[in-house]
């Protein structure tokens, strides 16, 4: 098999004296779709935020596409160009129209000219099925539309990897599906993705692997089928019984 796109080796992360990640080992290959779940505070966000260096790990190694994440700004920039991220709270730039939100990074980071950046932006707005909202401000869109814009914004950089941090948790129930559909499309097109989510239907239908975290550790890692039907760890069982009873 080829070299993994993401390698985390014995990664620890501390916030002060509190250990948020304990000896994390994870490999993700190109085209793999990983779902991460676990109780609140278990370190899911921290783990994926280490992948694009929004958090700095304290020990162990993280390699993205073979490039190790260190303090080197150059390496961090290079990694961030290839890793897109979608946040729970969308984080669209409120003072820019949807179109400018999408054009910003292609222009500044990829150095595309304006018309090229606009072409890219429109292409991905069509992908997420809201080209008609291009000239609105984020506050004028529904939550579901905002999150789709945020996905399109990440896609405009043509990332190798997409990270999702509970992308549907802030949405009203009736808007969750429109976002999940976009994510499923991406998964089916072969995008490498790591999704922190509690949408178990999504995990079942698209994940190659489900990772369960608790107290900063990866407790269980299995195929969705195994994970849901035959969980090994007691903590996984407890978590599943809680989440599936809803």
């Amino acid at each position: 098999m080829t070299q993994p796109l993401i390698q985390m080796q014995n990664v620890d992360k501390f916030f002060g004296s509190f250990q948020a990640l304990k000896n994390i080992n994870l490999e993700v290959h190109k085209g793999e779709r990983i779902v991460v779940c676990g109780p609140s505070g278990s370190g899911k966000s921290t783990m994926i935020r280490c992948i694009n260096r929004l958090e700095k790990h304290n020990s162990g190694k993280i390699l993205i596409g073979g490039r190790e994440l260190t303090d080197s700004e150059k390496d961090i920039d290079a990694v961030r160009r290839e890793v897109g991220m979608v946040f729970q709270s969308f984080n669209l730039f409120p003072h820019m129209t949807v179109l400018r939100n999408l054009m910003l990074a292609p222009q500044l980071v990829r150095k595309n000219n304006k018309s090229k950046a606009k072409e890219i932006a429109m292409k991905y707005l069509e992908r997420v099925k809201i080209p008609d909202q291009a000239n609105k401000y984020p506050s004028q869109l529904s939550g579901g539309q905002q999150q789709r814009v945020a996905i399109a914004r990440a896609l405009c950089m043509s990332p190798e990897i997409l990270l999702f941090d509970e992308p549907t948790s802030a949405l009203d129930p009736e808007m969750i599906n429109e976002v999940l559909e976009v994510m499923e499309d991406l998964a089916n097109e072969g995008m490498t993705m790591i999704c922190v989510t509690h949408e178990m239907g999504f995990a079942r239908s698209v994940a190659d692997r489900v990772i369960f975290m608790d107290l900063g550790e990866i407790v269980e890692e299995a195929s969705p089928q195994e994970f849901f039907e035959n969980p090994k760890n007691e903590r996984t069982k407890l978590f599943l019984s809680q989440i599936l009873s809803h």
Binding site: N52, N91, L104
Partner: peptide, 17 residues
């Protein structure tokens, strides 16, 4: 909002940008 700056970082924008 710090989240907006994180979104900027995640897109690869430099500190100055």
């Amino acid at each position: 909002d710090r989240g907006l700056l994180e979104a900027g970082s995640a897109l690869g924008l430099s500190r100055n940008q």
